[in-house]
C-alpha cells in the first residue's frame, strides 16, 4: 500500500499522522514509501496551506485594504539567474530536464528568492527539484520548498551560522554521544569538519543517502517538531555511528576522515533503517534538551554494541 492509503486507513487526524505515523515510524512499517509522498506532504502541510496560503498570497492579502498600491514583491531576475539556469540544467533526473519543468522550476526559484530576499546558493536547486518530483505541481511545490528553506537557509546556507551550529550544537552533542568519534574528528589537524557538514546539511543528505532515506528524513523536517539544527545534529551523529569502525580506525588520518565523509554513500556498509535513523536521532535530541548525558551515552553505546559488536570505551567520561 502507498503512503496515502496507509495514512487514510490508520490515522484520524493530521496530528495522529504526524505523531504516530511519522515520528513513531508506523507509516514506514506499513507503507511502500516510494509511493504517495506527494499526498503525504500535502497532508502534512495542509493546515498551513488552508490557513495561510503560500507566502506570496499571504503577503498579498496583508495589503488588500491599503489605499496605496500593495507592496507585492516585484519579480525581477536575480543576478544569479545564469547560475540558477545552469544548475537546473544539471539536475540529475530526466523529468526535471524537460523544458516546461525547467521553466516552472526557474520561475518558482526566482519567486521564492524574491519573496524572501535570499541570494541563490548552489544546492537550492536540488532541494527544489526533489520536491517537484514528489508533487509535480507548482503551488504545493512552492509551499513545501518555502517551508523547507525557511528552516535550512538561515542556518546552513550562512557560513557564520553554520560554523556556530557546528561549534555550539553539533560538536557538543557528538562529544557526549561518542567521545571517541568526537576526539577523532576534532583532533588537532589541518582539516575542518565544515567541509563535509556543509554539503550534508545544505542538500539535506541528498548526496549521502539513498533517496528513500532522504525523503523519510524530509518528512520529519516538514513536520517541524524539533528545531532543524538539533534534529540534523542527532541524525548526523547516528550516521557517524554507522561508520564508527572506519572513522575510529587507528590509521585514519585527517584526509581519510574527509574522504570517508565526503563519500559517505560509498563508505557505509550497513546503514540503519531510515525510520529508525530518525527515531534515534530525535531521541538524542530529546535527551540533549533534557541534558541527560548518561542516557545519550547509553543509547549510542548500545547502538554500537548491537549493530557492530563494538564496545565504546572512553577515557574522558565527559
Amino acid at each position: 500500500m502507498d503512503l496515502k492509503q496507509v495514512a487514510v486507513d490508520r490515522y484520524g487526524s493530521r496530528d495522529e499522522l504526524v505523531q504516530r505515523g511519522v515520528w513513531r515510524g508506523e507509516l514506514y512499517r506499513y507503507a511502500d514509501t516510494d509511493k504517495g509522498r506527494g499526498w503525504l506532504w500535502k497532508a502534512l502541510i495542509a493546515e498551513e496551506q488552508a490557513n495561510n496560503g503560500n507566502q506570496f498570497d499571504k503577503r498579498h492579502q496583508m495589503h488588500v485594504r491599503r489605499l496605496t498600491p500593495p507592496a507585492v514583491p516585484k519579480l525581477t531576475a536575480p543576478l544569479e539567474k545564469p547560475v540558477i539556469e545552469l544548475d537546473l540544467r544539471r539536475l540529475n533526473d530526466a523529468e526535471l530536464l524537460q523544458p516546461e519543468v525547467q521553466k516552472t522550476l526557474l520561475e518558482l526559484m526566482i519567486r521564492v528568492l524574491t519573496i524572501h530576499n535570499w541570494t541563490y546558493k548552489q544546492g537550492f536547486h536540488e532541494l527544489l527539484g526533489t520536491i517537484w518530483l514528489q508533487l509535480r505541481e507548482p503551488n504545493s511545490t512552492m509551499t513545501v520548498f518555502e517551508k523547507m528553506m525557511e528552516q535550512v537557509v538561515p542556518i546552513f546556507y550562512n557560513e557564520t551560522r553554520l560554523a556556530q551550529w557546528e561549534k555550539h550544537i553539533f560538536a557538543p552533542l557528538l562529544k557526549v554521544c561518542s567521545p571517541i568519534l568526537h576526539d577523532q574528528l576534532y583532533r588537532e589537524g589541518n582539516h575542518t569538519n565544515l567541509l563535509w557538514l556543509l554539503r550534508w546539511t545544505r542538500v539535506l543528505f541528498l548526496r549521502e543517502l539513498p533517496m528513500d532515506y532522504v525523503l523519510v528524513i524530509w518528512d520529519h523536517i516538514l513536520t517541524g517538531t524539533y528545531p532543524i539544527e538539533t534534529l540534523l545534529s542527532g541524525i548526523i551523529v547516528v550516521l557517524l555511528l554507522n561508520v564508527y569502525g572506519e572513522l575510529s580506525h587507528p590509521e585514519c588520518d585527517d584526509d581519510d576522515l574527509v574522504e570517508i565523509l565526503l563519500n559517505y554513500n560509498e563508505s557505509v556498509s550497513s546503514l540503519v533503517d531510515s525510520a529508525e535513523l530518525c527515531r534515534m536521532g530525535s531521541r538524542l535530541v530529546e535527551l540533549w534538551f533534557l541534558q541527560d548525558v548518561n542516557s545519550l551515552r547509553m543509547i549510542c553505546n548500545t547502538f554500537l554494541k548491537l549493530r557492530f559488536n563494538v564496545n565504546q570505551v572512553d577515557n574522558n567520561n565527559s
Binding site: 544548475d87 540544467r89 544539471r90 539536475l91 540529475n92 530536464l97 536540488e126 574527509v258 565526503l262 563519500n263
Partner: peptide, 13 residues
C-alpha cells in the same frame, strides 16, 4: 555532459 553541481567541495583520490 550534465554532471551534477558540486556543493561546497568534493574530493577524489
Amino acid at each position: 555532459p550534465s554532471f551534477i553541481t558540486t556543493i561546497g567541495i568534493d574530493f577524489k583520490i
